[in-house]
Design a binder for these strands. Structure first.
Lengths: 200, 200
DNA sequence: TGTATTGACATACGGCGTGTATGTTAATAA
DNA sequence: TTATTAACATACACGCCGTATGTCAATACA
């Protein structure tokens, strides 16, 4: 069966995204040229500009893709936990672990915010924050928390996990550092939510 | 009195740093050209490459300068507090507030890590982290904490403050959001350090 | 004091990369 | 079957970084 035109386009988009992910992760956004990128995918810059507008558009698409995968994974892990509390803590631990991936670290955590500008204004890179917010919101809706500024708490927890992840990735022995970071994060999250102001 | 040569050089370095701070903060690192930068300072690119090596070197110098100012300010605020506990919390609040400054936000928090690479490997942008680490270390030395993984806690607190700062800066009404972020951060830090594992 | 030398900075040049304008070809529609 | 659109390739113009070279004043030295 001959492929339809829309299918072909999806295929080229996929090739470009895959090539961009590899290139951005290994050399960084600024140091990768569109020529090399597209050549590695067996295409030219014409396809790229036609599909993604410009270089920033391509990065935005890549960030969005990775962010979606992270959110999916975090949600599965959170849903597999016994309680909402455990789910929130497990998501945080998973987030720290996922940031060990160079693609996540370099593209989503470093280049993404710098190139795309203020993260909170962009639709991408917000799904993980949305997951944290949803977890905190659920806790409050269940009556397990009260008077929580959900936004503030979400951003604090996300930032803590993010920086912990960067620390882990930069450490001499990431695999040994990871559990320390996850344990400290768990203590932090529990300590915050155990504050008398929040307890129902 | 005629200025000596070293004084002249310090003066040009200062001019270039000041011009770079303004340009990087307003347009971002990538969108700033060395020609415009130096022309605004009444100089040419020759002076820049002679003094800072390359564009990254200039950014590193700017980040270092701002970071030093932040650390000084945080240290003053921390030293003015009554206790070590209050000092640590006050430094965190001050950090969140300082990140409202576009120079801090854009240059130190966004472009710095992306362009200069892994923050923990760079001497700059670590003084604020050093301050947090020093505060936690002091608490432990005083016998007020035990069995704290100082590194993990420092990175968690720093990351939380950083992300909170970005959230505040991006909010519709930063001045109204700031106290919420600071309050939530205080609760988080207190909650973490109040964990039974840490209490002496 | 006169000269040599160094160093701070300016100028000139080459190369690379982005973005756009134009061209080409294959698929859909009439 | 033909006209049109859209996906993609090719060609060009512009800007910017980094380096190589040049210039001139300040210091060192005799």
């Amino acid at each position: 069966m001959a492929k339809t035109r829309a299918e072909m386009m999806q295929e080229t988009r996929g090739k470009l995204l895959a090539s961009a992910r590899a290139a951005f992760a290994s050399h960084g956004y600024a140091a990768t040229s569109m020529d090399d990128l597209t050549a590695a995918a067996g295409l030219t810059r014409g396809a790229l500009y036609h599909n993604f507008g410009d270089k920033k558009g391509l990065l935005a698409a890549v960030v969005d893709q990775i962010d979606a995968e992270m959110a999916d994974r975090a949600r599965d892990i959170g849903a597999g936990a016994g309680s909402l509390w455990d789910g929130l803590l497990a998501e945080g631990a998973a987030y720290i672990e996922m940031a060990l991936d160079p693609e996540v670290q370099r593209i989503v955590l470093l280049d993404g915010p710098a190139v795309l500008g203020d993260p909170s204004r962009w639709p991408s890179q917000n799904r993980c924050l949305d997951a944290t917010r949803a977890a905190v919101t659920a806790l409050r809706a269940k009556g397990l928390l009260r008077e929580v500024d959900i936004e503030a708490v979400s951003h604090l927890l996300n930032g803590a996990a993010l920086n912990a992840a960067l620390w882990v990735a930069a450490s001499d022995d990431p695999l040994a550092t990871l559990p320390k970071a996850q344990e400290a994060f768990r203590l932090m999250a529990e300590g915050l939510l155990a504050q008398p102001q929040f307890q129902a």
